[in-house]
C-alpha cells in the first residue's frame, strides 16, 4: 500500500506542471474572461458544455434533463494496422456496446449496458455535484460518475464468482468557456477484484495492481452549430509490475441533430468501458495501433 502511494505521488509529481496548467485553465480563466455584461446575467445554470453525455469510451460532465430516455450504440472497429486487408479494420473484429439510460432528476442519470467483448454487463450512475452558472458565481461543473461492470463469461474463466466484478469512479471537472470551447479533466479510480498475474523466470510472481488511478483530459471546439471537433487524452497513473496499460488519444467529430448525437473518431482504445481501457489497453498509438469508433445517441423526452 505504502509502495503504491509512493508511486502515485511520484507520478503526480512528474505531471505537476501539466496538472497545474489544467487547474489554472479551468479555475482562473473565468476571472480573466469575466466582463461587465456577465454581471447582469441571472444565476441560472450554464448551458451544456458538451452536446452529449458520452465522451469516446467515457463520460462528459453533462447530465441529461429530467425525464430523458437515452439509447446509445457504441462501436469500435478493428485495428487499422492489423495487416488483414480488412479496410482499415472496418471488417475486422469489432467491439459493441448497447445501452439505455434515464434521467429521473436533473441532477441524476442512471443506466445500464452490455458489451460484446468479455460480455460485460454494466450499471452506472452519474450525479451533478456542482453546476457552472451563467453569472460565474460557480465557475465550474463537478460531476461524479460511478459504474459497476460484471463479466458474464463462462464460470471456468474465474476462480471465484466475485472475480467477475469491477468498479470505476470518476470525478469530472468541466467548464464551458463560451459558445465554441469547453474542456474537462477527470480523475478516476478503478478497482478490479481480479487482475493478471504472471510467474517470472526466477519463479516469483508479479501481478497488476487491483486499484488503478487515471487522469483524463478532453476538449471540444464547435466549428458550426452542428459540427464539433472533439479530442481527449487518457493517462493511466498507476504503475503496474506487469502489463503496464498504454495511454490513449481520441480525436473525432460530433454531429448533433434534434434528437441524435453522432460521434465518429479515431482512437487506440478497443474497449468500451473506461476502466477496461485504463487498466488493460495495450494498443500503442505511437506504433500506429489506431482504430475507428463511433457512438450514436438517441434521446427521447417524457
Amino acid at each position: 500500500m505504502k509502495k503504491t502511494f509512493i508511486k502515485l505521488t511520484n507520478t503526480i509529481y512528474n505531471c505537476r506542471l501539466f496538472l497545474i496548467a489544467i487547474v489554472w485553465l479551468i479555475v482562473a480563466s473565468p476571472v480573466i474572461a469575466q466582463d461587465e455584461k456577465e454581471e447582469k446575467k441571472s444565476d441560472k445554470p450554464e448551458r451544456p458544455a458538451f452536446e452529449s453525455a458520452w465522451w469516446f469510451d467515457g463520460q462528459t460532465g453533462v447530465l441529461y434533463q429530467k425525464k430523458t430516455l437515452e439509447f446509445v450504440i457504441q462501436h469500435r472497429f478493428g485495428l487499422m494496422n492489423s495487416g488483414n486487408g480488412d479496410l482499415l479494420g472496418i471488417y475486422g473484429p469489432s467491439n459493441i456496446r448497447l445501452g439505455l439510460g434515464y434521467a429521473p432528476t436533473d441532477k441524476l442519470n442512471v443506466g445500464f449496458g452490455y458489451t460484446k467483448n468479455k460480455k460485460i454487463l454494466d450499471f452506472y450512475g452519474k450525479y451533478a455535484l456542482l453546476r457552472q452558472t451563467r453569472s460565474n458565481s460557480m465557475p465550474i461543473s463537478l460531476t461524479y460518475y460511478v459504474n459497476m461492470g460484471i463479466e458474464l463469461l463462462d464460470a471456468k474463466n474465474y476462480l471465484n464468482s466475485t472475480d467477475r466484478y469491477n468498479y470505476f469512479h470518476d470525478l469530472i471537472l468541466m467548464r464551458r468557456f463560451g459558445k465554441k470551447f469547453s474542456a474537462q479533466v477527470g480523475t478516476s479510480l478503478t478497482h478490479y477484484n481480479a487482475v493478471k498475474w504472471e510467474q517470472q523466470d526466477d519463479e516469483s510472481w508479479k501481478t497488476m495492481e487491483n486499484d488503478s488511478w487515471g487522469l483524463s483530459v478532453g476538449a471540444r471546439y464547435k466549428i458550426t452549430s452542428q459540427l464539433i471537433l472533439m479530442a481527449g487524452y487518457d493517462h493511466p497513473l498507476t504503475q503496474h509490475a506487469i502489463n503496464q496499460p498504454k495511454p490513449s488519444i481520441n480525436i473525432g467529430v460530433e454531429i448533433a441533430t434534434s434528437s441524435h448525437a453522432f460521434q465518429v473518431f479515431v482512437t487506440n482504445n478497443n474497449r468500451i468501458q473506461p476502466q477496461e481501457n485504463f487498466v488493460f489497453n495495450q494498443n500503442d498509438f505511437s506504433k500506429g495501433d489506431w482504430l475507428i469508433g463511433f457512438n450514436i445517441t438517441r434521446l427521447w423526452g417524457f
Binding site: K179, T224, S225, T257
Partner: peptide, 15 residues
Amino acid sequence: EDEIGEDLFNQHCKS
C-alpha cells in the same frame, strides 16, 4: 446570446 438561437434553429428547425 452566444448565438444560441441560431444553434437551436440549426439543430431543430433547419431540416
